[in-house]
Write a protein that binds this DNA or RNA. Sequence first.
DNA 1: CAGAAATCACACTGTTCGGTGTAGTTTATC
DNA 2: GATAAACTACACCGAACAGTGTGATTTCTG
Lengths: 210, 210
Amino acid sequence: MPRTIAEAQTPGRRRRSEGKKTAILDAAEALFLTEGYDRTSVDAVAARAGVSKRTVYDHFGDKETVFLRVVERVGESLLATVRAAVDEELTSGRDLGTALTAFAHRIVDRTFPSPDYLTFRRLQAQQSPAGKQPVTVRDRPEQLLEERFAGLAAEGAIHAENPAVAARHFTALTITLALQAALDQREDLPPRDSARIIADGVAAFLRAYA
Amino acid sequence: MPRTIAEAQTPGRRRRSEGKKTAILDAAEALFLTEGYDRTSVDAVAARAGVSKRTVYDHFGDKETVFLRVVERVGESLLATVRAAVDEELTSGRDLGTALTAFAHRIVDRTFPSPDYLTFRRLQAQQSPAGKQPVTVRDRPEQLLEERFAGLAAEGAIHAENPAVAARHFTALTITLALQAALDQREDLPPRDSARIIADGVAAFLRAYA
DNA sequence: CAGAAATCACACTGTTCGGTGTAGTTTATC
DNA sequence: GATAAACTACACCGAACAGTGTGATTTCTG
């Protein structure tokens, strides 16, 4: 079992502890995602993380906090993904269709095998004890996109009185549809692949807004 | 407590039994929706239905079957709603924008206080013991719309090489966005009302496809 | 080496909940 | 008015599970 260079030198009580912590969060994320909150026992999380149940409780206090931390982590990851994609793909002076297509692809499938967006949505849909809601990053990614679209509108790249609406329309036509298709994936239907969906969506968007 | 005429005369053992059955399904639907599958106990369903727990088991055998029946019922209701809306609103010879707007509204808010579409999606997202999947109506409503759009394309009312894609785009731009907004509804953000969303969506759709 | 942090194994509690068994009660029907 | 279906009240079982307490063990650090 190789370690990263940073961990190799002086594992240190602190570093080891931190490692277990993320191992627990990783395990919890996977299980919450596939089994749901209720059907995921803390014992199962501990087992998957290769850790004793006691350690889980020492670190997080209770199950709900574990869930909260997982959602926070995924939310931050998603935000970083979107920010990078906006900054690097939606640059001025590039062909709009190409840029939009590349952007959508990055959000939808580039982040595999852990597509942040999908994971985040699924976890959000999860019902944890409705108690303390994860003061969520919610809407933050969307907001980033809206701002960029405002820029594009100012440049005249797209025509929209309301750039925020245009941004939501773009997301709906590409990312949402692609992820919806991925979610529905059952063995019976032919898999509508994301490339096709994104291409169609970008084309429609350009017809409406270019 | 007034009764319908049909029930008033000779309630009948059979009719009473059927009444309890739907009362159980009603209670279950409400609870599954607000609490989720796992957090809904059979005792709670029975209490809300004004029925003994034993009766629930006599009628349905187990909790999962209750869930299955609920999903089936909602799915059928949704299908009926969409079929009626397609037939009555998306008629030929009507102004396209008006027709599409009316159609979307019917799906989104006309069916209140039990918006079939929303309910159905939420229940589908629910994780019941992944066992027997509700051989769902899934995709049926979408299919109806696709067929009608094919007709519209043939008439020349919309321009689309692939009417099925156009149908999905329409749904994404109007219904999906409106329901998403309804779902997110938290007290903090200003409620983006569905009328605005639908109007924007129809406008964008027409720009892309009219 | 001594002390402390991190962790583990493990036993244990309390509760919730799905599901069953049963005996009794109401009520439509013949 | 006897019969049987529909239903209720209620006690009960067993399993799963969140969370705790404890004492031992490893492992870094001063």
